[in-house]
Computed example of a mutant assay.
Amino acid sequence: MTVTIIDVAKEANVSPSTVSRVIADSPRISEQTKRKVREVMARLDYHPNFQARNLAAKSTKTIGVIMAHSTSLAFQNPFFPEVIRGICTSAHARQYGIYLSTGGTEEEIYQEVMAMVQGRKVDGIILLYSRVNDRTMNYLKESGFPFTMVGRPYHSENEITYIDNDNKKIANDLVNYLYKLGHKQIAFIGGNLDYVVSSDRLDGYQKAISEAGFPYSDAYFIHDHVFKTKGKSGIHELMKQNTRPTAIVAHDDLVAYEVIRYLEELSIRVPEDVSIVSFNNHALSAYVKPPLTTVDISIFELGLEATNYLLEQMLDPEVEVKHHYVPTTLIERESCRRLIE
């Protein structure tokens, strides 16, 4: 026989409304009463029907989490499980669940977000990416629906709450790190420039090269599309130049792993022949050969803070727009060699 809120109220000798307030953790109820009611709930094995409560309150107690690709592709990248861990930590503390997008194309993602908003399937949305001229972001902004972004928006930056790393500065710092080790020929293997994070990292690299007094060369930049289609041959072309690079900045650790593999197949050693630095500090980066020097971008904190800001927005639609850069740390391992003493 199902235990009801009335059964709990009788056993605890309180009104059903008091039990309801205890479930909601109302500050109007004393800690002594809360403790007594919760003990009865545990003894009777009573579980509140949160779904019914949320419908009555016109709240789903659910946050939509939108990835740039389908879940099957996204979870191949260690970034997403870690950022979602941060989201879940914050959401769970407030008794929210998450609704993961499953769209595999830009159009499917857009349609899914429209359905989430118009069908009130979620109370707010977190975009785990920032794409250049993104329909989905534009729709969310125009609809007035609560949302935050992991990543700097391409436009309307002062109108959207977001969490990010200072990717231009980090890329600049990586080039300067290599420069202090004696490297002057520094290549960059980039990410997809349809995403703001990729264009920001390329901008930071180019600025650092210019500030160091070195001419920027397109021959030292391998675009994401070229890297994906040409792979080993693209790295071979880079490394057979008359003045070949002594160091490479990779867009992220996954790219760095591939570069190291291609270089090994070409009998080019890391770091003896070429040094490599990267971004993200995935768990495997300490165990590849050689262990990878990379920037820890605090992925967990990105998810945690994006959710905290979203929850603020959901509780108070008039809350001010916020921007926050999560701190980063360079993790020095064994993939870089000093050329000067």
Rank of each mutant, 00 (worst) to 15 (best):
T4M: 04
T4Q: 01
S15Q: 03
S15E: 00
V37I: 07
N49A: 02
N49E: 03
F50S: 04
A52F: 05
K58F: 15
T62E: 06
A74G: 15
F75N: 13
F75R: 14
Q76A: 07
P78F: 12
C88N: 13
G97F: 09
L100M: 15
G103N: 02
G104W: 12
T105E: 08
E107K: 15
E108S: 14
E112K: 09
M114Q: 15
Q118H: 05
N133V: 02
N138V: 07
S143Q: 05
G144K: 12
F145G: 00
F145K: 00
T148I: 08
T148C: 10
Y154G: 12
T161V: 13
Y162Q: 09
Y162K: 05
A171P: 00
N176R: 09
K180Q: 12
L181S: 09
V196I: 06
R201W: 02
L202G: 00
D203M: 07
S210M: 10
L238D: 04
M239C: 02
R244T: 00
P245G: 01
H251G: 10
I260T: 05
L263T: 01
S275G: 11
V288R: 15
L302D: 04
G303N: 10
G303Q: 09
N308C: 01
L311V: 07
M314G: 01
L315D: 11
E318F: 11
K322D: 03
E332I: 15
S335R: 01
R337S: 12
R338C: 14
E341R: 09
